[in-house]
Amino acid sequence: MQNNEKVSAVVSDLRIIMESTKDSNVSKFLSRTEERGDLLTFFRSLSTYAEWYEHRRHTFLHFKAKYPDIVTLPEGLLGDFIILRNPKVSGFELMIVWKIHLDEEGITTPVLDLLPKVPEQVLEQKMRSVESIPGNFRSALRLFGIEAAIENLIKVLGSEE
Rank of each mutant, 00 (worst) to 15 (best):
R138M: 13
I17Y: 10
R44S: 12
D113P: 00
F137P: 02
F29I: 02
K126W: 09
S47W: 02
W52P: 03
E19L: 06
G106H: 00
S129R: 11
T21E: 09
G79Y: 11
G76H: 01
R15S: 12
M1Q: 12
P119K: 15
R15C: 11
S27T: 06
G91I: 03
E105I: 03
R15Q: 10
V130F: 07
S129Y: 07
E105L: 05
L30I: 14
L73E: 04
E75A: 15
L153W: 06
A65T: 13
D80I: 00
T109F: 00
V7G: 08
E131V: 12
M127K: 13
V10R: 13
S27G: 06
V97Y: 10
S139D: 06
V26T: 14
L84A: 04
S12I: 12
F42S: 12
H55K: 14
L123G: 05
L77D: 11
L73I: 04
L114D: 01
I133W: 08
K64D: 00
L112I: 07
S8T: 10
V156S: 12
V71T: 09
D69Q: 08
N25E: 09
K88T: 06
V7M: 13
T48L: 12
A65M: 11
I150Y: 08
I107Y: 14
A9L: 14
E93S: 07
I16P: 04
L114W: 04
L102N: 02
E131T: 11
N4R: 10
P74Q: 00
P110C: 03
A149K: 03
G135K: 14
K117W: 10
L153M: 09
L153G: 01
F144V: 07
Y49K: 02
T41E: 10
S8K: 05
K66P: 03
E34Q: 15
G91A: 02
T72Y: 05
P68D: 02
I133R: 10
R128D: 09
G106S: 01
R15F: 11
G91C: 00
D13L: 10
Y49P: 03
K6Q: 12
